[in-house]
Simulated scan of single mutants.
Amino acid sequence: MNLTDLAKQMAFIHEIDKLKYIQRKTRLFNSERHENDAEHSWHLAMMAMVLAEHANEKVDIMKVVKMLLIHDIVEIDSGDIFLYDSQANHDNTAEEQKAAVRIFGLLPDQQAEEFISLWEEFEAGITAESKFAKSIDRLEPVLQNVSNEGGTWSEYEVKYDTVIKKTSKMKDGSQVLWDHTNYLFEESISRGILKKD
């Protein structure tokens, strides 16, 4: 047993507990309580396993799950950026890259390299696995907002065009989930919980 590696792994495990304190704007289904990043990541991993058959391409589901479990760990340092924020860009930033190096760098070298590589692959959104993972990441807030009578769409006056712009890449990972999401959008418009200009 390599005790140095174990000590590094334990330091990482302690560090990522902080993810439970990063609050998101979205609320749990049918709830007033905001979810945290750890809950979000767990839910996405479960959704990916359940919905894997709907990926556009055959995917390595274990790799997808790993991506979803680690994709927001950088927010321990950089904080959560609201998907529909009109000021901040939700894409990869230098701050997030720095956070990835610091946090994953707590691990033994081989694990650190694997986690950074997975995080970068997710951010790039080019592989079948990262496209499907990103589809799942975009689907969950839609489901939350629908369950909460508009949720953040209503609270922050987010319009249909903005929602479409932020979610349309879902179709790159799963046309089936994108079609279902469009059905939810139309239903939300008819219920008055998503506004068209």
Rank of each mutant, 00 (worst) to 15 (best):
T4C: 06
D5K: 12
L6Y: 13
L6G: 03
L6T: 13
K8D: 07
Q9G: 04
A11Y: 02
I13D: 10
I13M: 13
I13A: 14
H14M: 13
H14L: 13
E15H: 08
I16H: 05
I16C: 05
D17A: 12
K18A: 15
Y21N: 13
I22C: 06
I22W: 02
R24V: 11
T26P: 01
T26F: 04
R27P: 00
R27N: 10
L28P: 00
L28M: 05
N30A: 11
S31D: 11
E32H: 07
E32S: 13
R33E: 15
R33S: 11
H34F: 04
A38G: 02
A38Q: 12
H40T: 04
W42A: 11
H43N: 09
L44S: 03
L44F: 03
A45M: 12
M47W: 09
M47I: 10
A48M: 09
M49I: 11
M49P: 00
V50F: 09
L51P: 02
E53G: 06
D60L: 03
D60P: 02
M62K: 13
K63W: 00
K63H: 01
V65E: 08
K66M: 10
L68C: 09
L68V: 09
L69W: 04
I70V: 15
H71Y: 08
H71L: 11
D72T: 09
I73K: 03
I73R: 03
V74W: 04
V74E: 14
E75M: 15
F82W: 01
Q87G: 00
A88M: 12
N89R: 06
H90A: 13
D91Y: 11
T93A: 01
Q97H: 05
Q97C: 06
A100L: 07
A100H: 04
A100V: 05
A100G: 12
F104H: 05
G105W: 08
L106T: 08
P108R: 11
A112V: 06
A112S: 15
I116V: 15
S117K: 07
W119T: 01
E120M: 15
E123H: 06
A124C: 00
T127A: 10
T127Y: 10
E129T: 05
A133D: 06
K134M: 06
K134V: 01
I136Y: 11
D137H: 14
D137A: 14
R138K: 14
L139Q: 07
P141D: 05
P141M: 04
V142I: 15
V142Q: 02
L143M: 08
V146I: 02
S147W: 01
G150I: 02
G151P: 01
T152C: 07
W153F: 10
S154M: 15
K159C: 03
K159Y: 12
Y160G: 00
V163M: 05
V163F: 06
I164F: 08
I164K: 10
K165N: 12
S168G: 01
M170I: 07
K171M: 07
K171W: 00
K171D: 04
D172L: 14
D172Q: 13
D172A: 09
V176E: 11
V176S: 08
W178P: 03
H180Q: 12
N182V: 14
Y183A: 09
F185Q: 10
E186Q: 14
I189S: 01
I189G: 00
S190R: 12
S190P: 00
I193A: 00
I193G: 00
L194D: 10
K195R: 14
K195S: 11
K195C: 06
K196F: 01
K196L: 11
K196E: 14
K196N: 10
K196Q: 15
